[in-house]
Write a protein that binds this DNA or RNA. Structure first.
Lengths: 164, 164
DNA sequence: TTTGAAAGCATAACTCT
DNA sequence: AGAGTTATGCTTTCAAA
């Protein structure tokens, strides 16, 4: 077997253009019927149904969710919080990760390279609300050393659909 | 009229606990039938149907989407890119914002307070892929001065459901 | 082996009392 | 709020590529 370095390395295993169209469409309009889907991708409804099942089984196609606008529901302030840990052992880390998991106002949490250990995206009502989370939650967590908060002035783009 | 400062300032206008339950459930399971919903929130299916229509009309309840896992589809690398502008006039800003809008690999873009003007979350295949976007896209944009990239090692939490 | 057309069955959406 | 009506989508079967 030779060492290979292709030009186009392959996007993903077992996925053709029809599958790709299905994924693209369902990421935008999750409640499309099989018939409507079939019409748009150029296949039969039954075929679409089978493909969807396969995509679900393979783990590519995830859950159906409805999006709600944070502002309209009183969560108009998004804050990014960089966190540096004082303890780096696995149990401290997983303890902090459980903290992030269990708090519904933190919508995203990433373990990061670089100067900061974690980056959180938080949706709160206002700065008062955020102050509470920071003081009584993040900064008092036994494993965190320090944090830095950055406030969003405007949400320019928010998309849940990853390119396929 | 007196100046008031309530303890519990009101979560949102015209929304009761049943609506809240509906929003919570639909954010997790967007394809729940009205009947299933009715059973879980303690109301009739018809009532749920009416409430959903009202929530949609009010703009609280947004589109239905299906989530796909970025890794399974070859977009496993998440990068946060902080951008500082060299031009701050409205047309330069909106020009950059249109740039973000039009590039499907940038999933989120926020106008930020503090040292950086924008924060982008980008989903790419690998660092080579990111380098292309950075060099041929972001850094060569006429309105940006500089940028700083931060790579996610692991996605600890990703939720699309805002607390209600 | 995978696809498309068709048919029956089940269930959900919407209306009316 | 409840049942009934219409419509839609789900699922299987069969035939063909």
């Amino acid at each position: 077997m030779r060492i290979e370095s292709r030009e186009k390395p392959m996007k993903s295993p077992d996925i053709d253009n029809v599958d790709r169209k299905i994924l693209r469409l369902l990421q935008i309009e999750g409640d499309l019927s099989h018939a409507a889907l079939a019409e748009r991708v150029g296949a039969s409804a039954a075929s679409c149904w089978r493909r969807i099942k396969a995509l679900e089984a393979s783990g590519m196609l995830g859950p159906t969710v409805r999006l709600v606008s944070p502002e309209s529901v009183g969560r108009g302030l998004t804050v990014f919080c960089q966190v540096r840990m004082k303890l780096h052992d696995p149990v401290a880390r997983s303890d902090f990760e459980r903290f992030a998991e269990s708090h519904e106002e933190v919508l995203e949490c990433y373990s990061m390279s670089g100067d900061w250990d974690y980056l959180l995206r938080v949706a709160v009502a206002d700065v008062r609300d955020y102050e509470r989370l920071l003081m009584k939650g993040i900064l008092t967590h036994h494993a965190v050393a320090t944090s830095s908060s950055h406030f969003a002035l405007k949400r320019v783009k928010y998309s849940t659909s990853v390119p396929v």
